[in-house]
Amino acid sequence: MSQTQADFAAEQSPEAQAPTSEALPQATAARRPWREHPLLSPALFLVLLLLWEALVRIFEVPKIVFPPPSAVIVALYDGIVSGLFLPHFLVTFYEIIAGFFLGAIAGISLGILIGLSPLMERLIYPYIIALQAMPKIAIAPIMVIWFGYGLTSKIIITATIAFFPLLANTIVGLRSAPKDQIDMLKACTATDWQIFRMVRLPQALPFIFVGPTSPSSSR
């Protein structure tokens, strides 16, 4: 009600309104549509949780088949308090970090090799793309057979997932250096290494870290 009044007032002719500097932000705040409210998405989450809880209770679904959110929260709390989750969390965390770094080192160094050498690109890039097309989940069992049930198999699988986006971004990034910048360095007798260090690598860094181009989304 007050919102519509504000809207109505704001539509009056500006001379008649003569808004003061304090009145102006209030008017814009009142006019902000509900669909731009910052708590909109969290509110949806809450509504869905309540719906889930209600449906499970109304239809008396057994906990073992589909536990309600309340049971999940209790179980999560128990697991944390009893100290059951922490060591497992640390193991998984370690697997992710180690796997990512392994994949990153392999991806970036191979990316540099391919990005700088057209020969290497022709030689090995087709096979890397072919391997990338294979779903990682499909080869997970083989990884377990090769590397066992321990940390190694999980680290290797994580590494293969992290590998390709970083490889592709490194290649694209190294190729993104404008020809003029390279010519400028060449003209003052820069070596290939100097061109790499002063132009190609700095140009590639945003691609490697953020991956703004399409290859990164091909995961």
Partner: peptide, 16 residues
Amino acid sequence: GPTRDLGLVFQAPVLL
């Protein structure tokens, strides 16, 4: 090939 005793200015500034 490029020589040390030469300066080159491009149409664009080509700064890093």
